[in-house]
Design a protein around this nucleic acid. Structure first.
Length: 214
DNA sequence: CTGACTTTTCAATTGCGCTC
DNA sequence: GAGCGCAATTGAAAAGTCAG
């Protein structure tokens, strides 16, 4: 996989448009918890089922510090027994990194069920059903699409600049330079706003031009 | 069945006094 | 002043209750 999910990329995305990454991370975390609780209950939300072994019992609010900012999560409670996601424990910083990376990578390279499945495994969430993974991937895909297709400020933008990180990656058996591009603008309110993100290889001149036009 | 709210429990943290 | 032990305080999670 392309090395675009590094610190630089995550932080550029997080600081220039904090809400984007934060919202996506929050939604993914929320879906991950819901899926886990469904597994624990043996039945879906509101579903009447013979297989049900537990019921939900509201939510408890908790703040989760991530590099994208503080995310407020609603942790589902259970009627009998308890539920607390392991990956939310303070020590599990890798979980937050994995989540942010998957969200960022999904934006650039597309959402895949395999990527979501692997993320769940990294967070220690096993036994996710194929349909749950599929639903999560579809939700993430929708969030990405919404961000990509969102209307930009009516403008004008006081400043517009393009930031790029170049990495060498192996592609088709040889090493080529790949650029992760982030177009940032300062809108009328003086806030930084991400206008577009893309990854192009050094040989892909058309990619650069397409990005600049976009 | 679920969510909101309250009460209880428990662990972590803080503050204070005592001894060396 | 440094180190230690203990009690008081605080915050978060679990458990319980009630209404929709």
């Amino acid at each position: 996989m392309l090395p675009v999910q590094g610190e630089w990329f995550d932080e550029t995305l997080a600081t220039a448009s904090p809400d984007v990454l934060r919202e996506m991370v929050a939604r993914m975390a929320q879906m991950m918890m819901d899926a886990e609780v469904e597994q624990r209950c043996g039945a879906g939300y509101g579903e009447v089922s013979e297989a049900r072994v537990n019921s939900r019992n509201g939510y408890r609010r908790r703040e989760w510090d991530t590099r994208a900012g503080t995310v407020e999560l609603a942790i589902p409670k259970l009627r009998t027994g308890t539920y607390y996601p392991d990956w939310l424990l303070e020590r599990q910083r890798r979980a937050e990194r994995a989540l942010a990376s998957v969200v960022a990578t999904s934006y650039l390279l597309g959402v895949s069920t395999r990527r979501v499945e692997r993320l769940a495994e990294q967070l220690g969430v096993t036994r996710l059903s194929k349909s749950q993974v599929s639903v999560m991937a579809r939700e993430l895909d929708q969030m990405v699409s919404e961000f990509r297709d969102r209307p930009l400020d009516a403008g004008p933008y006081t400043f517009v600049w393009i930031d790029a990180l170049t990495q060498k990656v192996r592609e088709g058996g040889r090493t080529v330079n790949v650029h992760a591009l982030v177009a940032t603008g300062v809108n009328a309110d003086g806030h930084r706003e991400i206008l577009g993100i893309d990854v192009v290889s050094s040989e892909d001149g058309a990619g650069w031009l397409a990005f600049l036009r976009g």
